[in-house]
């Protein structure tokens, strides 16, 4: 595996660590870009998702919108926005924020929906106000799915931020495109390995974080998927999927 050896040498070469185009700078750019994008998307998606999850209204619209957005090719959105606003940071920023919204939105409302209806009814019956129900019951119990949504959004953004280097001078993706241009396979492969490593590390951090934010009592780490149906009946939806509790 000579190619991997070359790539490893490229990664370890001190010359690639200096200056504004060095590995550390690109890595930080990549990370900051990812974090800011996911935060922006969360600011939009979480409140809307909570609202949908709590009231049950607009769900089908949200599902349709997320489904449609999933089908939209990232590269197309990225290049189109880049043509509109010009080469630079704003194009990937806008495009990736749009892409990060659906998974977070889905996580937010699916988290609420996965809560057993009787728990919410109990909360209401002991006199909790709607806002108390949201804050102290639905948000903590819905947390695992919300985090799962943020996790998949983050992974998507980290991956697509690589592609952002196609239209902007940012992130680890630069090494891929620079290497492609100069036919420097060590640089392409080295850059690729760095992105993959970054993605896997983030994945690991999320896997750990997911355990930490889950309230005790929802300990299993997974929400009671497809709880006994409730307030918003979907006739004929539960069989075949609900796991038998034998």
């Amino acid at each position: 595996m000579n190619l991997f050896g070359d790539a490893l040498n490229w990664i370890l070469d001190p010359a690639n660590y200096a200056g504004p185009g060095g590995i550390p700078v690109r890595l930080v750019e990549h990370l900051v870009f990812t974090v800011v994008t996911v935060l922006m998307a969360s600011l939009v998606a979480i409140p809307v998702g909570f609202l949908i999850g709590h009231t049950g209204r607009g769900r089908s619209l949200a599902v349709a919108a997320s489904g449609g957005l999933r089908a939209i090719p990232t590269l197309g959105l990225l290049t189109l926005v880049a043509l509109w606003v010009g080469i630079g940071l704003s194009a990937p920023f806008v495009a990736l924020t749009v892409l990060a919204i659906p998974p977070i939105l889905a996580g937010a409302y699916a988290g609420f929906e996965a809560i057993d209806r009787s728990i919410i009814d109990s909360a209401r019956s002991v006199g909790m106000s709607e806002s108390q129900i949201v804050r102290t019951v639905e948000v903590p119990l819905g947390m695992p799915l919300l985090i799962a949504g943020i996790r998949s959004a983050t992974l998507q953004v980290v991956a697509t931020a690589t592609l952002a280097a196609y239209v902007a001078d940012i992130g680890l993706g630069r090494f891929l495109f620079a290497g492609l241009k100069t036919r420097d396979y060590a640089e392409m492969l080295g850059g690729s390995l760095l992105v993959i490593l970054l993605a896997l590390v983030l994945e690991g951090i999320f896997a750990l974080g997911q355990r930490l934010v889950i309230p005790r009592g929802v300990a299993s780490g997974r929400p009671p998927v497809d709880r006994a149906r409730s307030a918003r009946p979907d006739p004929g939806m539960e069989p075949a999927i609900t796991k038998g509790t034998h």
């Binding site: 998974p103 996790r151 992974l155 994945e203 997911q210 004929g236 939806m237």
Partner: peptide, 22 residues
């Protein structure tokens, strides 16, 4: 024997949320 679109919510949702990596 089944209406595919209706019974598949759980798996669809799992895939949507990227639970693959859970």
């Amino acid at each position: 024997w089944t209406r595919p679109a209706t019974t598949s919510r759980r798996a669809l949702r799992a895939a949507q949320l990227g639970e693959v990596s859970a």
